[in-house]
């Protein structure tokens, strides 16, 4: 296991957010408080370390607000951690929100070029993959319509289709697939396994344990910014589900006592 190649090394990272009591983004507030700044530190991630093996499909699980999206954003270089480092070995494409940068008045076609270049593709690359992108998205009838006329599912389909054709070594997906219909989810699943067969790595966040269990071979469980467990998917998911079950039982128990 140790000599397996890594896709991402998460090395002891901590990410802090400053929570300001007052509206700090006004000049008045700054002048009033002088050089002191009134804030509380909030550690959204604290000393998290784990490795993502190359060629794996890696699930990131945990309850709301546990820091999953924050971790992915650190990986995507949107946030920079206060401590530690997160090192991807290969090109990363992060799908944190589908269709960011779509211009509602522009057509699907124009948006493919816009979004593709936002995601780092060159015009030539987009041109060569254009047909595939449209084909995979399944919105070819509407490709010359402005995207504001798309349904939210079509929006996701097109956005996802562009992102997946960036062809990264490491694809990072933050619960964006939920909006697609069954057919599209199926398509994505197949695309993911195709990805894995090519030795690429997928990191995904999902609240659907079924999906994680079915797709992932490795997983990490975050709770309140701290890593609880990581490793093989099944035991990690089980441990997470057990903890949820326990919490549920405890609450149920209390209820019982009160009654």
């Amino acid at each position: 296991m140790t000599d397996q190649k890594l896709a991402v090394r998460v090395d002891d990272i901590s990410k802090r957010f400053r929570l300001y009591k007052e509206r700090n983004q006004t000049l008045k507030a700054t002048v009033m408080r002088g050089r002191r700044s009134v804030h509380e530190d909030f550690w959204a991630l604290r000393d998290v370390s784990f490795d993502v093996p190359e060629g794996s499909t890696f699930g990131l699980i945990g309850s709301n607000g546990s820091g999953k999206s924050t971790l992915l954003k650190c990986l995507a270089k949107i946030y920079y951690p206060e401590k530690g480092s997160i090192t991807p070995y290969g090109k990363v494409a992060a799908l944190l929100e589908v269709g960011s940068g779509f211009h509602p008045e522009l057509s699907g076609r124009e948006n493919i070029f816009l979004n593709g270049s936002i995601l780092g593709m060159s015009r030539k690359e987009i041109l060569s993959k254009y047909d595939e992108i449209v084909e995979f998205s399944g919105v070819s009838e509407f490709i010359d319509q402005p995207v504001k006329n798309y349904s939210s599912g079509m929006y996701v389909r097109l956005g996802f289709s562009i992102a997946i054709h960036v062809d990264p070594q490491i694809l990072v997906v933050d619960e964006v697939l939920a909006v697609g219909d069954a057919e599209f989810q199926d398509k994505c699943r197949r695309k993911f396994s195709e990805f894995r067969d090519k030795g690429r790595t997928v990191i995904l966040v999902s609240h659907s344990m079924e999906m994680v269990r079915e797709m992932c071979d490795h997983a990490a469980w975050l709770n309140k910014g701290q890593l609880v467990a990581s490793g093989e998917a099944d035991p990690t998911i089980q441990a997470y589900l057990d903890s949820l079950g326990e919490a549920g039982e405890r609450e149920g128990g209390h209820g019982g006592q009160a009654a």
């Binding site: 008045e105 270049s117 936002i118 015009r123």
Partner: peptide, 18 residues
């Protein structure tokens, strides 16, 4: 630069659409 060109085009094209 390509991204810059595309974002600029987004503004130019989107501005007076319709």
């Amino acid at each position: 630069r390509e991204l810059l060109a595309n974002l600029t085009l987004r503004e130019v094209r989107g501005q007076y659409k319709r």
